[in-house]
Amino acid sequence: MSKIYFQGTYGAYSHLASLEIDAKAEIIPCKTFDECFLNASNEKNSRIVIPESNRITGNIGIEYLIFKYRLNIYSEHFQKIEHNLLGQKGAKLTDIKNVFSHAQALSQCSNFIKKNNLNEHVRADTAGSAEMIAKNKKRDEAAIASSLSAETYGLEIIKKNIENEKGNLTRFLVMGKELTQPEFSNKKYITSFLFKLKSKPAALYQSLGGFAINGVNLTKLQSYPEKNSFDSFFFLCDLDGHIEDKKVQKSLEELGLHCQDFHVLGVFEADPIRDKKL
């Protein structure tokens, strides 16, 4: 049986995403993102399911681990995020005074929290908050978490879908040590890579010219400082297309002339949800 590692505890949105990706896999929680990456680096047949960005609140902040471990990206998965207020069995909304969750979940439900005058408490993750209030058994405490967390820890859903905006999605990356990529055919692909430019004036401007000339669309370009540095940056980039497409090849060859470091992270099919209007 293949393994999937995720960060958090059972009932987390990463657990929910892992079940949707491969319900037959052995799904194992890790305390930290670093632990997830380390396990996948040491085990050939394992995968990790890692949240990369949220549609509303932006990046999750795991870019430095992508740069450090350089695991292969096999696919992307967009998980619908539906936040629920979870409490003790029989508790009502009027009983709740204190709400616990991850900082992003609290931010994504800020309107509901303010409207009901709740005291918010930041915790490491959503499912861990649900587990904590289940152990505390206090009627005035609630957690913001998934419906899976309610099932996992025997809590009641006091209020469903309390997020500020509907259609909230988190993009997850499925990654592992083995290098694989789909054959080039008539489908929509994403090529993901990282690069570090040579230190020279206008390096970024010059390096991106090849994409414009060859008509290749960049869907993501983000810079991150190297460890212990404020003057050396690497870039994470996604583009529309397969690396075997001649337009993409020419663009990347042009980019390579300006790079000190270049690494392809993965080629994978674009999730069909990208084409849907939510």
Rank of each mutant, 00 (worst) to 15 (best):
S101N: 09
F230P: 00
N54Y: 02
A145V: 06
A124W: 01
L221V: 14
S107G: 11
I27N: 09
I158P: 05
P29S: 05
G256R: 12
N214R: 14
H102C: 08
I81W: 00
A23L: 11
F193E: 06
K200N: 03
A150R: 07
Q206V: 03
E254M: 14
Q249T: 13
G176R: 06
H102Y: 10
G90M: 08
N42L: 13
S14E: 02
G215P: 05
L218S: 02
R47F: 14
F262K: 10
A25H: 08
L221S: 02
H242I: 05
G154Q: 10
A134T: 03
N72Q: 11
E26D: 14
K24S: 15
K198M: 07
I28L: 15
L236S: 06
V216Y: 01
R274T: 11
E178G: 00
K200F: 04
E253T: 10
A103R: 14
F172A: 06
Q181G: 00
F230D: 10
I73M: 03
H242G: 00
L65V: 09
L155H: 02
S101G: 15
Y189I: 05
L65S: 09
H15G: 02
A17V: 08
G8N: 04
I113Y: 04
F195G: 00
V49F: 02
Y224W: 07
F211H: 07
